[in-house]
């Protein structure tokens, strides 16, 4: 469990399973579809190669797509999110030299930093995802409402997970 590679592989599998067999099965409401699996991209260490980040985003998205029967939609959104991640981190970080092994988490950076970081990325992910899925201008505003409400829910799940699994030692 100490190896970061093994840890991330387990996290990947676990998040896909939780998303597909738990969250996709629960009917919250027509407007609210939380996508918790993006936590994987959020939690990758800072030192990760940029190209590898994109490839992992693609793999994660396509695995969710396989189970949901929505080929390409989740992959497109997750790749976009992975693409935005380095930029968001650069915008938010105070010091320039982030240690490459460290993972973004509440424990390491505090609540406010993590909230802004995950909130903006989750919002970007959901924005691409819902507009691609619905793909209609006639439902523009209701889609936007869906994006906002679902982002809030996903974010709540992510923050809860942070407090559950990344407690201060």
């Amino acid at each position: 469990m100490n190896s970061p590679v093994l840890k991330n592989i387990i996290r990947f599998a676990l998040l896909v399973l939780i998303q597909v067999f738990l969250l996709n099965k629960i009917q919250f409401s027509g407007y609210i579809n939380p996508y918790f699996y993006v936590l994987f991209i959020l939690s990758l260490p800072f030192g990760i190669r940029k190209w590898f980040l994109l490839v992992l985003g693609f793999l994660l998205g396509i695995s969710i797509d396989y189970f949901s029967g929505t080929l390409g939609i989740h992959a497109a959104a997750t790749v976009f999110m992975a693409f935005c991640r380095p930029g968001i981190i650069r915008l938010l970080s105070v010091k320039d030299d982030l240690e490459p092994d460290i993972e973004p988490s509440i424990r390491n950076f505090g609540f406010l930093w993590y909230f802004t970081y995950s909130g903006s990325l989750v919002f970007l992910h959901h924005l691409v995802l819902f507009y691609l899925e619905i793909f209609r201008f006639s439902e523009f505003f209701s889609t936007f409402l869906m994006v906002i409400l679902s982002s809030i829910f996903s974010l709540v799940f992510i923050l809860i997970a942070q407090y559950l699994f990344y407690r201060k030692k």
């Binding site: 998205g61 939609i73 497109a76 790749v79």
Partner: peptide, 8 residues
Amino acid sequence: LEALCFTL
């Protein structure tokens, strides 16, 4: 990658 997704 995005092009690949959109083709899909």
